[in-house]
């Protein structure tokens, strides 16, 4: 059992937790992920590491409440326990040798982009961050990004905060105004990462994306997280989750991510009713 040390609502749909898991905290690096189960009959879900405290032995996770498992997780409070927490899995984001980087985060993906920005910032790289949200209410981690970036641009789809528009607009502007990035690192919804790649490709700026496909074991056994990268089958859990964005088949990844859409909808609706009843 793994104890929830802190819990904080970042916005109405996104929650942060620190989980006591000293072995994971000791090894975790930006870009890696963990797998957790909320209860003993729960589903295994992967979540990318948002932070860690090696001294305290805690690992920070940030999740969006989207399906049955994240709803159940969000029902847990500080001091309570979750059944399983294993990691760190996957490969760390490669940051060696990077001098100037643009980090592009979208929605809850910003939670994963932040530790990468921090790591680059700490190693002395110039970090430009562009973070995008649907609206002001969904904004998260602005202060944290500000502290880890030399330049921060906040975008909202509806213009309720920062600049109005999608993240690729300021990215393209920056590139065209002569910013020379060694690399662009994009973490967010598949469609956002696809658009970032479409933006950087004409300029041939190396672009890394962090993939988050459906997984079960997360240790290189089931093959459920397979992606087509550079025409070859690759596994996000052991080969990734970071991949060369120019080579990822995003359309296929988007199609595969909706495999259980019906099941998830039923789960969500069933749980909403259940939680509503409990509240009554």
């Amino acid at each position: 059992m793994y104890k929830i040390i802190t819990k904080r609502e970042l916005n109405p749909t996104v929650t942060m937790m620190d989980i006591y898991a000293p072995l994971v905290a000791k090894k975790a690096q930006a870009g890696q992920f963990i797998i957790l189960r909320v209860d003993s009959d729960g589903e295994r879900i992967p979540l990318t590491v948002a932070g860690y405290d090696r001294e305290k032995g805690t690992v920070e996770i940030i999740f969006q409440i989207v399906g049955g498992t994240t709803m159940r997780l969000n029902q847990k409070n500080e001091g309570e326990f979750i059944a399983d927490f294993v990691g760190p899995l996957g490969c760390a984001t490669k940051t060696e040798g990077l001098k100037k980087v643009c980090i592009v985060g979208g929605g809850v993906g910003c939670a994963i982009a932040l530790p990468v920005a921090r790591k680059l910032h700490e190693q002395g790289a110039e970090v430009h961050s562009i973070i995008g949200f649907r609206n002001k209410d969904l904004l998260i981690l602005e202060e944290e990004f500000k502290a880890a970036s030399n330049k921060l641009t906040v975008m909202t789809d509806d213009g309720s905060y920062g600049r109005q528009g999608v993240v690729t607009v300021p990215l393209k502007e920056a590139i065209e105004s002569g910013e020379h990035y060694d690399e662009v690192i994009a973490i967010g919804p598949l469609i956002m990462m696809k658009c970032v790649v479409a933006t950087t490709k004409p300029y041939n700026i190396p672009t890394t994306v962090s993939m988050n496909p459906i997984m079960i074991d997360g240790t290189g056994m089931c093959g459920g997280c397979r992606l087509t990268v550079g025409g070859k089958t690759r596994f996000a859990c052991v080969d990734g989750p970071d991949f060369n964005g120019f080579e990822v088949d995003f359309d296929e990844a988007m199609a595969r991510s909706s495999m259980y859409a019906d099941f998830e909808k039923r789960e969500r609706e069933g749980l909403c009713n259940l939680f509503k009843k409990e509240a009554d």
Partner: peptide, 26 residues
């Protein structure tokens, strides 16, 4: 133990409804 499942390398293996036996059984 066993690791990553093999696929045949034929077209369509990433369609929805294609499993490795490991995934289906797990």
């Amino acid at each position: 133990g066993a690791g990553l499942p093999r696929f045949m390398g034929i077209p369509g293996e990433s369609l929805k409804g294609v499993y490795s036996a490991n995934e289906f059984l797990t």
